[in-house]
């Protein structure tokens, strides 16, 4: 369970990093069609991974808290812990 959680978080971080890096490339190459297409592909992958992680393990962003009984944003460990 915990291993699956870490694996999914690592995958989400990898996809997100690919976007972070690509965004910097697009800032200086805004007409690059290959990069623009790759951005759309990664964006879809990140959206799906983030939704799956949030659904299974709780929110990574405090716009996505989905629990009416307890404020689960403060429940889990923080990234430095």
């Amino acid at each position: 369970m915990n291993q699956d959680k870490n694996k999914l978080l690592l995958y989400l971080s990898q996809v997100s990093f690919a976007i972070n890096d690509l965004v910097l490339f697009l800032d200086t190459h805004p007409c690059d069609t290959n990069a623009l297409n790759y951005y759309q592909e990664l964006r879809k992958a990140r959206k799906e991974a983030l939704a799956e992680y949030t659904h299974k393990y709780g929110p990574l962003i405090n716009y996505d808290v989905d629990d009416a009984c307890y404020w689960e944003w403060v429940k889990d460990p923080w990234p430095w812990e």
Partner: peptide
Amino acid sequence: WNYERRLQYPV
């Protein structure tokens, strides 16, 4: 800014 509860690279 939005905070995302993970590191950009794992430590």
